[in-house]
């Protein structure tokens, strides 16, 4: 009893640790050891040690696919940090500063979150398709017919379009977090700054930003993790192969393609090592995310245990 009394945090941590370990951590690690087997998920499992890892890094084709997918995943992450996070902060700040129409902004910006991805893609097709899209019609009507393009399929722009859709649908999430963080700022702090004559932007830079610094850093890490793990837009826009020449391929899609392959009405063959190699990719992905997270947490929170 005494031992626990000295460590009151255990009372707060224990329920979370127990349930989270059972339902989240254990299944992941139970599955991770499949990366040491050659297995297609149905047939016999053959233990191969770290051969899958060796194969992944030495097989030229697999390695190329992985580096290409990684490149795209990093691009999504970089674009998100450079553009989306500042936009989220500004959106949140406008809403926080009680601009007219703030509830409307909040609901509208967040609403794409609720719409199923295939419907979003379908509506974007109706609007931006090259042959039938509304947007091109508008351009024609406005006399800019020569600018008409198949906006959603401009080659080489694929990954930017995927990023655009992810951001369009997801921008509200970060915004809500920033808004929450801003609401935590002590009212007196803002008020006194206002009375001292600090303008709209000055208040943002000198009071708001320092207060939401941690939230921003956390969201950078979350964006990294999401950049590495999101794949549904790439899948819908480019199919299981990630578009022509893998133009919209991302890490998780690479995992998904290896582990579960293509399921199509014509049938096809599942590879002898689908689940084994898929799990190997997931583990490599995990290590990349884990190491970056650890570095960030060690830096950001370096003072906290002192």
């Amino acid at each position: 009893m005494n031992w626990i009394k000295k460590r009151p945090y255990l009372l707060f941590l224990t329920p979370g640790i127990i349930l989270y370990s059972i339902f989240v951590i254990y299944p992941i690690f139970a599955a991770a050891n499949i990366s040491l087997y050659k297995w297609n998920g149905i047939g016999k499992r053959v233990f191969v040690g770290i051969n899958n890892y060796i194969e992944l890094f030495t097989n030229q084709d697999l390695f190329n696919q992985m580096t290409n997918a990684l490149k795209n995943s990093f691009l999504i992450f970089a674009l998100t940090v450079i553009f989306v996070i500042p936009i989220q902060i500004i959106m949140a700040y406008i809403i926080y500063s009680k601009a007219r129409g703030k509830s409307f902004f909040q609901a509208a910006i967040f609403s794409p979150q609720f719409i199923a991805t295939p419907i979003i893609v379908f509506i974007f097709t109706l609007i931006f398709d090259g042959n039938i899209g509304l947007f091109n019609k508008l351009l024609e009507v406005a006399g800019f017919g020569h600018l008409a393009k198949p906006w959603l399929g401009i080659p080489k722009m694929g990954i930017y379009i995927v990023w655009g859709m992810i951001s369009w649908a997801g921008v509200g999430v970060g915004m809500i977090y920033f808004l929450g963080a801003m609401k935590m700022i002590a009212f007196e702090e803002m008020e006194s700054a206002y009375l001292e004559g600090a303008g709209f932007w000055k208040r943002l830079f000198y009071i708001v930003l320092p207060n939401i610094k941690m939230t921003a850093l956390n969201l950078v890490l979350i964006s990294y993790i999401i950049g590495m793990t999101i794949f549904d837009y790439s899948y819908i826009l480019g199919g299981i192969s990630g578009g022509i020449k893998g133009s919209v391929d991302v890490m998780s899609l690479f995992f998904y393609r290896m582990a579960f392959g293509d399921s199509n009405p014509l049938g096809g063959v599942i590879s002898d090592n689908s689940i084994g190699m898929g799990t190997t990719i997931a583990c490599v992905l995990f290590f990349m995310v884990f190491i970056v997270s650890m570095v960030q947490i060690l830096i950001v929170y370096r003072k906290e245990e002192e």
């Binding site: 097709t125 398709d129 090259g130 042959n131 198949p150 399929g153 080659p155």
Partner: peptide, 21 residues
């Protein structure tokens, strides 16, 4: 097969056909 085929998706193609294009 039409213009800009590498940028046209299947749904768009189906709609174009059904709209008489």
């Amino acid at each position: 097969l039409g213009e800009n085929i590498e940028a046209t998706d299947g749904t768009g193609a189906q709609l174009a056909f059904m709209n008489g294009k």
